[in-house]
Design a protein around this nucleic acid. Structure first.
Lengths: 333, 333
DNA sequence: TCTATTGGTTGGAGCGCTCCAATGCTGTAA
DNA sequence: TTACAGCATTGGAGCGCTCCAACCAATAGA
């Protein structure tokens, strides 16, 4: 249970501790003879460098901290993939922590991450107050994903929800729909831009917006549909605030004896793995998630290397994924 | 960008560095006067202890490393919740890393985690070879979740897949089914026990097992159903190897004009969030995921505190969750 | 009065490493 | 031969912290 140290390797290889350090860092100024002796000794002892001692001594770190607000959401997993890819390319490791969507837990996760003195921090859709983010940003470079900020030391990567909503509306309009309702995400992240994009797109087409208050869950989507039916206000097409909501909406429509897409078309948002299931096959708006991660890592590493001090604000374009829940109104031709 | 050290706090509070250290660790042998002075100074400077320096000096760690084989799978998120809960209770933090189901990436993630010298390691369904796990276990306590091991220094936490499969078969038999097929998980984790449990339960009921080769995806589930239909070998009930497979199976059945559960009953496995969607409402087998995490953390912390040297092998009982994809054979009564 | 005892406080050593100035050792030019 | 590069190699200081023995009142006991 006790790991060998550099000293042990040096002793075994018959060289100094400093020489072992050079070999471990791949320095070119070591003779081939010593290098192989050191590597052999390290191998035999099962030695690997102590990252903490290293970063303590060098006052640098090759670790990026990633705070995932919700591990349950596969959205973040793909962003992490993107971060990981870029980080690894550039010789950095990542450590992840999660806040479980609770500000208190998230704050603690942040503290924990900071206590490792990583080179930088990526916060995925954090729910902590902006002041906490600002404080962290005083200590190290910080990038926010799926959350905006006006702090000049913080970079951000977001999708353009207005564009996404417009894509969906344009698609439905091109199919011939005129009555298109939006099941709104309420207080949820990014619900605002999506709603604004929907309203703007409707008005641009000369159509009357119909915003129905809802939430990011399948139960809420179903509830919204039931209330629309009860009010006799069901449109020919629905733009849900996200995929879960859309699936709930579809099931409520089917419960009411309506067919999707023949009677009502439904569009989701996020293109989660759920949407791709053949059983669901949801037309939806895709966000370039891995790209989010890559851009976030790139931005962070630029700051880490002090190549840039001006903030960047990435706003990525989502895209439309047409599956089988949308069709022209009035049944199949 | 430069964080204050203990020295800075000591200077500002007019005490020694050692005294600050005592305060930071909540030692009782500090006068109230000094304690408040130190805390005030720390607050003013925005000081928080450097976890790495601390663990280096104390040769202990309050960090548990968690390797998640696949961040995309919400199964692990719930296990992590359980780990996090117990760890936090006992004053430990967790850092997560992911291997993305690739042995090479996972190995690297393991290395990275080890380089922080955590107090212990939880591996969630790792795909690295057993030797790599054994090597890690020489350096620190290791607990395996959703993977078994015979190494005596490694604790394991698993669900009893045989019991789960039997629960499903018993449920279907009690509904009156006699022809029940199992869509097999092939090489997938835990596919073996599930298959064995299915076969044993069928034989216990005096029924003929029908194992159909498949995989843990919805496409595979659909394929398996189509081949059963093509062979005119469709049973009255299906036990899928997991929920994804079950959803694929359902959609293929519906495509073929069959109704679930009137014509064919379907049972999944895992009780993912997918199964709970009203649109899916899948009868399935639930694993106590958070309990996995809690037990894993408990076992690990026992080893960390050297309270135990004998391995523990937790085998948890899954439970049946009846939703709407199962019914007596031959349509509704 | 003097010595123990106790509780609070401190300086110094050291955790495993990096960094740097200094050292030794070639080989080459004068 | 001496001088001087040029290069590989080394010891020591120090990163921010913990731990420990030592220390210093202040009080208690004899």
């Amino acid at each position: 249970m006790v790991r060998p140290t550099m000293e042990d390797v040096a002793l075994r290889a018959g060289v100094s501790r400093a020489l072992v350090s050079l070999v471990m860092r791949g320095s070119p100024k070591v003779s081939e003879l010593r290098r192989s002796a050191v590597l052999k000794a390290a191998e035999e002892l099962g030695y690997s460098p102590h990252a903490m001692a290293r970063s303590l001594a060098s006052r640098t770190s090759t670790v990026l901290g990633v705070m995932v607000s919700d591990l349950h959401n596969a959205f973040f997993a793909e962003v992490v993939d993107g971060i990981d890819e870029v980080a690894r390319e550039q010789g950095f490791d990542i450590i992840i922590n999660t806040g479980g969507r609770s500000p208190a837990r998230e704050r603690r996760a942040l503290e924990s991450l900071l206590s490792f003195r990583p080179a930088g921090l990526v916060l995925l859709s954090p729910v902590v107050p902006a002041t906490a983010i600002g404080k962290a940003a005083e200590q190290l470079p910080v990038v926010l994903v799926a959350r905006s900020s006006r702090v000049s030391t913080v970079d951000t990567v977001n999708d353009d929800g207005e564009v996404g909503a417009r894509l969906a509306v344009d698609h439905l309009v091109s199919l011939g729909h005129k009555r298109i309702a939006h099941l709104d995400g309420g207080e949820g992240t990014q619900a605002g831009p999506r709603r604004r994009g929907y309203v703007a797109a409707m008005e641009a087409h000369g159509l009357a917006p119909q915003v129905v208050s809802s939430e990011y869950t399948d139960a809420a989507g179903a509830r919204a549909i039931r209330s629309l039916i009860a009010d006799d206000a069901l449109p020919t097409a629905i733009l849900s605030c996200n995929d879960f909501n859309a699936v709930g909406a579809i099931s409520a429509l089917e419960d009411a004896g309506l067919c999707v897409p023949q009677d009502v078309s439904v569009v989701g948002y996020d293109n989660t793995s759920l949407a791709a299931l053949r059983h669901v096959s949801l037309t939806t708006i895709d966000q370039p998630r891995a790209e989010f991660g890559r851009l976030a890592a790139d931005a962070l590493l630029q700051r880490v290397r002090e190549e840039r001090t001006e903030p960047v604000r990435h706003l990525l374009n989502p895209s439309l994924v047409v599956r089988t829940t949308t069709a022209p109104p009035g049944g199949p031709r």
